[in-house]
C-alpha cells in the first residue's frame, strides 16, 4: 500500500530545502511588516482623532473577518485593475503583512491596555511628551504581555505562507506541488513539507517561550 521511495526522497530533498529558504523569507518579511504595521494600527486607535480611530478599527475588523487567501487573490489579481501591478512576492507580502498586522494590532491593544494608569500619570508628572511616554514607558511594559500572542502569530504566519503558492510564490508548498506534477509522486514531497514545517514550528514555539522569559528578566519585570 505504501510505496515510499527513499531514492526519490533524497533526490527531491535539496529542492525542497531550497524552497524552505523562500518560505522562511516570506514568513520573516511578512512578519516584519505585520509587527510594525500592527503597532501603527494599535496606536492609531488610541489617538484623539475619532475619524482615524474609526477607520482603522473598521479596517482591522474587516481584514480579520475575511479569508487570507481571498486577500492574497485580491491584491494580486484585482490590484492591476487599479493600476497596481505587483509581482507575486510583493503582492503576497502586502496581503499577508496586512492580514497579520490586523491580528497583531489586537495583541498590542491588549498589552497597551494592561499598562496601569499610574504609569501614564507618572509620565505626565515628569512632563514626558506623549511620544516619549509611549516609547520609553508604555510600550516597553506592553511588550512582555504581548509576546505570547506575538509568538503565536509568528508560527501562524509561517504556517500560512503556503497560501502564497496560489499566486505562484515559489515557496515550499508550491515547489512540492511542482515536483508532484512533474513526477506524479505526491507522497514524498508533501510528507517532507509537513516534516519541514514541524521541524521549524516546534523549536520556534519553544524558543519564543525562552525569549519571553529573557525579555521579562532584561526589563527587570520578574
Amino acid at each position: 500500500m505504501f510505496d515510499w521511495r527513499w531514492d526519490f526522497t533524497f533526490e527531491i530533498l535539496p529542492r525542497l530545502i531550497m524552497a524552505t529558504g523562500n518560505t522562511l523569507l516570506a514568513a520573516v518579511l511578512g512578519y516584519g511588516i505585520a509587527v510594525v504595521l500592527g503597532l501603527v494600527f494599535a496606536l492609531a486607535q488610541r489617538t484623539p482623532y475619532r475619524a482615524l480611530t474609526f477607520v482603522v478599527r473598521e479596517a482591522v475588523e474587516f481584514i480579520r473577518s475575511t479569508p487570507l487567501v481571498l486577500q492574497i487573490f485580491f491584491v494580486f489579481y484585482v490590484g492591476p485593475q487599479f493600476g497596481l501591478r505587483l509581482s507575486p512576492w510583493t503582492a503576497g507580502m502586502i496581503a499577508i503583512g496586512l492580514h497579520y498586522a490586523s491580528y497583531l494590532s489586537e495583541v498590542y491593544r491588549g498589552g497597551l491596555d494592561s499598562v496601569p494608569k499610574g504609569q501614564w500619570e507618572a509620565a505626565t508628572s515628569l512632563n514626558l511628551s506623549t511620544r516619549r511616554t509611549y516609547f520609553r514607558v508604555v510600550i516597553p511594559q506592553a511588550l512582555p504581555p504581548s509576546l505570547a500572542g506575538m509568538g503565536n502569530y509568528l508560527v501562524g504566519i509561517f504556517k500560512d505562507t503556503p497560501m502564497l503558492s496560489v499566486i505562484g510564490v515559489a515557496e515550499l508548498m508550491h515547489t512540492a506541488t511542482a515536483i508532484g506534477s512533474e513526477t506524479y509522486r505526491y507522497l514524498e514531497p508533501y510528507t517532507l513539507v509537513g516534516l519541514i514545517f514541524l521541524a521549524i514550528s516546534l523549536p520556534t514555539a519553544a524558543g519564543i517561550r525562552v525569549f519571553e522569559r529573557w525579555v521579562r528578566r532584561k526589563l527587570g519585570l520578574s
Binding site: G118, E121, A122, S125, Q141, G220
Partner: peptide, 9 residues
C-alpha cells in the same frame, strides 16, 4: 503618588 508609580523596567 500613593502607589509610587515608578517605571518598573
Amino acid at each position: 503618588f500613593q502607589h509610587f508609580n515608578l517605571f518598573p523596567h
